[in-house]
Deep mutational scan, measured.
Amino acid sequence: ASVAVIAAGTQGNIFATSALRSMRFLQILRMVRMDRRGGTWKLLGSVVYAHSKELITAWYIGFLVLIFASFLVYLAEKDANSDFSSYADSLWWGTITLTTIGYGDKTPHTWLGRVLAAGFALLGISFFALPAGILGSGFALKVQEQHRQKHFEKRRMPAANLIQAAWRLYSTDMSRAYLTATWYYYDSILPSFRELALLFEHVQRARNGGLRPLEVRRAPVPDGAPSRYPPVATCHRPGSTSFCPGESSRMGIKDRIRMGSSQRRTGPSKQHLAPPTMPTSPSSEQVGEATSPTKVQKSWSFNDRTRFRASLRLKPRTSAEDAPSEEVAEEKSYQCELTVDDIMPAVKTVIRSIRILKFLVAKRKFKETLRPYDVKDVIEQYSAGHLDMLGRIKSLQTRVDQIVGRGPGDRKAREKGDKGPSDAEVVDEISMMGRVVKVEKQVQSIEHKLDLLLGFYSRCLRSGTSASLGAVQVPLFDPDITSDYHSPVDHEDISVSAQTLSISRSVSTNMD
């Protein structure tokens, strides 16, 4: 405001104040949320940038038409019409005319000016109207692209899951042992070998009828009888010197917790746990005396209480009078009846079946994303299906024409109403129809010849004498029936064969 007042002088105070007050009108834009329509302006900018070359070309040609039209109309009207006294007036008329506004304040009066105005109007309006069409088509394409992008975003994750499931299904095939990355992934998420051994031990116990592997080994086996189970490696608790092959000598807290839970599941009659010990102070733990958990001091820290809870689970003690015997301790020893080589084939089979199920689920979810969402998608899918159906029908028609023997030239002739090819031409065609016709002709010829021969033979049998045999009239074959199959017997006289037959029969009768 200060700059405006200084620039306008003393009389500019009122002007500056009114100008600043008129800017209050811009507050109405906040009512229509114009300040939060950044996406709309961004869309407009992207459309203009995408079609910038077309817009520049249309505007450039339109500007050239405007300059030439205004100049030529000015030359034609400057002497006869006072409205075109300057080139600026003519340029104003050209702008209003070519933009199809047409105020009518300035019009050419001479015939030359009117002809020039009409010609440049028809030429220039087309170029001035091009930017509107370019922007409209650009907006339509952009909206369609955003629509497809939205659908693509919805299909991206199911497609990625389907590709991942397909690759993992491919890589978990037993015949592709060189693909090891997927197996490394499952090695990292699978439970430890100790848990798998416990699982298979329970399965084997159920197969043995509820007997433990130790009891199965204690059962008497006759001499020479084959053992029911192959000899396997035996594993004891981590306190002993022997372990399962492939295990580490260090046992983690999870393994100890699972070991304690498995020992508690063996039965309360074979294992008696004394009350857990509780320390009397955060600094020292008295293991010899058993106290109640309700006497825990409230001033303990979080670490002390955590250690106390761990001691409740991981440090059970047995009383002296209830101490288990050596046999019970041997039964409680952890027996590992299986090795990694025995378990891994079954584990890989389970993983393979899981990968198949996940692949089928991913495939079903991806197919669900291909379903249409709204009416536009339904129409688009219907149009695509219609085009596909037309293509299939056209391909089927082409194959039928190839089989029947109607080529493209014959199809055009039928469409024009011309006469089709004759039967002889159809026979000569190298097509399925021509071959079928040729075979039918040959079969008819053979059938006719057989009928003639059978009739001749029956007449010979009825006559009974050589004289009557020679008097029999043998009809000749019709050459038209034989089609294109020409037998060497067709052109010979059958009477010669009949005479030869009669001579042979007379000779045979004389010999008798």
Score class of each variant (00 low, 15 high):
Arg205Gln: 04
Pro220Thr: 11
Lys254Glu: 01
Arg364Ser: 07
Thr318Pro: 10
Arg399Trp: 02
Ser292Cys: 13
Met278Arg: 07
Thr482Ile: 15
Ser242Ala: 00
Glu492Ala: 11
Ile494Thr: 13
Gly391Ser: 14
Met511Ile: 08
Asp428His: 09
Ser353Pro: 02
Glu447Val: 11
Ile189Val: 08
Ser495Tyr: 10
Trp300Ser: 15
Pro324Arg: 12
Ile481Ser: 14
Tyr184Ser: 13
Ile503Ser: 11
Arg194Ser: 05
Pro276Thr: 14
Ser192Thr: 08
Phe193Val: 14
Ile253Phe: 05
Leu169Gln: 01
Ala310Glu: 11
Val496Phe: 04
Ser262Phe: 15
Val216Gly: 06
His386Pro: 05
Ser445Tyr: 05
Arg313Gly: 13
Pro191Arg: 04
Pro276Ala: 05
Arg355Met: 06
Cys244Gly: 10
Pro231Thr: 08
Glu215Gln: 04
Cys244Arg: 15
Pro282Ser: 08
Arg505Ser: 11
Cys336Phe: 10
Ser188Arg: 10
Tyr170Cys: 05
Arg258Cys: 15
Arg256Pro: 07
Ile257Leu: 00
Ser333Thr: 11
Thr349Ser: 13
Tyr229Cys: 06
Gln444Leu: 05
Val489Leu: 13
Gly470Ser: 07
Val400Ala: 11
Lys376Gln: 04
Arg228Cys: 10
Met432Arg: 12
Pro230Gln: 04
Glu415Val: 14
Arg459Ser: 13
Arg307Gly: 11
Arg212Trp: 07
Ser283Gly: 10
Ser249Thr: 11
Leu461Pro: 06
Glu289Lys: 13
Pro488Ala: 15
Glu327Ala: 13
Leu179Arg: 11
Phe302Tyr: 13
Pro345Ala: 07
Ser483Thr: 15
Pro421Thr: 05
Ala310Pro: 04
Phe456Leu: 13
Ala206Val: 04
Ile351Met: 04
Val472Leu: 02
Met389Thr: 01
Ser483Ala: 14
Asp187Asn: 02
Ile503Phe: 12
Ser431Asn: 08
Arg435Cys: 00
Val232Gly: 02
Ser395Thr: 02
Leu199Val: 10
Gly246Ala: 09
Lys419Met: 08
Thr465Ile: 07
Glu440Asp: 00
Glu440Gln: 11
Gly420Trp: 11
Pro230Leu: 12
Gly246Val: 02
Ile356Leu: 03
Leu452Met: 07
Asp423Tyr: 13
Gly407Arg: 11
Ser248Gly: 03
Val375Glu: 10
His236Asp: 05
Arg462Gly: 03
Pro275His: 05
Glu215Lys: 02
Ala181Asp: 11
Asp342Ala: 06
Phe366Leu: 12
Arg217Pro: 00
Asp341Asn: 11
Gly210Ser: 04
Asp255Asn: 00
Arg307Cys: 09
Lys419Arg: 09
Val203Ala: 02
Tyr185Asp: 11
Arg462His: 08
Arg435His: 05
Ser262Pro: 11
Lys412Arg: 07
Lys295Asn: 15
Leu314Pro: 10
Ser353Tyr: 03
Leu387Pro: 15
Gln335Arg: 02
Thr398Ile: 12
Tyr457Cys: 14
Asp401His: 12
Thr172Ser: 11
Gly267Val: 09
Ser353Thr: 01
Glu215Gly: 01
Ile446Val: 05
Leu198His: 01
Ile393Val: 03
Cys244Ser: 09
His486Asn: 06
Tyr457Asp: 02
Ile481Thr: 13
Arg355Trp: 13
Arg411Lys: 01
Val436Ala: 08
Arg212Pro: 06
Gly224Glu: 02
Leu273Pro: 07
Leu452Gln: 03
Val507Phe: 13
Asp418Glu: 10
Ser319Cys: 11
Asp512Ala: 07
Glu195Gly: 09
Arg307Leu: 14
Lys254Arg: 06
Lys394Arg: 03
Gln499Glu: 15
Met433Leu: 01
Tyr229His: 08
Ser383Pro: 14
Asn208Thr: 09
Ser497Tyr: 14
Ala225Thr: 02
Lys441Gln: 03
Leu476Gln: 09
Ser292Thr: 10
Ala197Gly: 13
